[in-house]
């Protein structure tokens, strides 16, 4: 209540632990079926699914573009690249239509898969693969490494720092998704943290005052993991973007 009397406070109030306990464990929402922990879990799945899925897909795509000659390869690369440059908001209706039609609404698959192709990731990996010296590829050929072996034994280990950098960017990106989860999930048990926060603040009906303390606690919870990941992996992150190990 004090937020409405005194405005935002910097120090925690008297109900610090109570609020967090309530937020994390007590079921909220309309159906009273989703707790803060569930939402944290959902956000985690979304973040990790995004990051890992995007890395796998964009590495494979970049591998194909850089190392294999196929007709009109460059042309297709730029076509795909330019369509992916369009933000989600532009193509959100057709995307929704497709996911709905495939019956993937209210599933993790529907949350993650439609957004998994990544122009940024593909581009980064493409540039990195291009900087790998040709002699290394030739040496591997003479050493009897086929395309798959070369990818797994040589390219993936070489891309370690690059993978870390992309992982951080994509994890934060996935974690912070708001519009897409809002559209695709109506089942509250699939709500993410970012989505849940809004739910709490939206109950301003009649004399009901939103539980601002809970919303704030959720906001802190939503910010912590990305911050932690960036802090922990930052040296890798910088290394991945700045230097390539050769």
């Amino acid at each position: 209540m004090s937020i409405y009397k005194h405005g935002l406070q910097l120090t925690p109030g008297g109900h610090f632990t109570d609020t967090y306990k309530q937020v994390l464990t007590e079921a909220g929402g309309f159906t009273k079926s989703v707790t803060g922990l569930t939402m944290l879990w959902n956000s985690l799945i979304l973040g990790l699914g995004f990051a890992i899925g995007k890395i796998v897909i964009s590495m494979l795509a970049a591998y194909a573009i850089v190392y294999f000659r196929f007709p009109l390869g460059t042309f297709f690369f730029w076509i795909i690249f330019s369509t992916l440059l369009l933000p989600l908001e532009v193509r959100i209706l057709p995307s929704y239509e497709i996911v709905q039609g495939l019956g993937m609404a209210n599933t993790y698959t529907g949350l993650i898969v439609p957004l998994i192709a990544s122009a940024t990731g593909t581009f980064y990996f493409r540039q990195f693969f291009k900087s790998v010296p040709d002699e290394l590829v030739e040496a591997a050929r003479i050493d009897g490494a086929g395309p798959l072996k070369f990818f797994i034994d040589i390219l993936v280990p070489l891309s370690k720092t690059m993978i870390a950098a992309i992982f951080i960017i994509m994890f934060v990106f996935g974690w912070n998704q708001y519009l897409w989860p809002t559209l695709i999930t109506t089942d509250e048990s699939l709500f993410t943290l970012v989505r849940g926060m809004k739910q709490i603040l939206q109950v301003w009906i009649g004399a009901q005052i939103p539980d601002t303390n809970q919303a704030m606690a959720l906001a802190v919870l939503a910010m912590l993991p990305p911050v932690l990941i960036v802090v922990i992996f930052q040296s890798w992150f910088v290394k991945g973007l700045v230097e390539s190990e050769k």
Binding site: P133, E135, E138, A139, A140, I142, D143, D153, E245, K246
Partner: peptide, 28 residues
Amino acid sequence: PADRDIAMVFQNYALYPHMSVYNNLAYG
């Protein structure tokens, strides 16, 4: 190339940077 029974030494060595010397020798 792998089946021609030859071995090549490159100008810029082309060693696998992430492998130890032992594994560089053993990989083929």
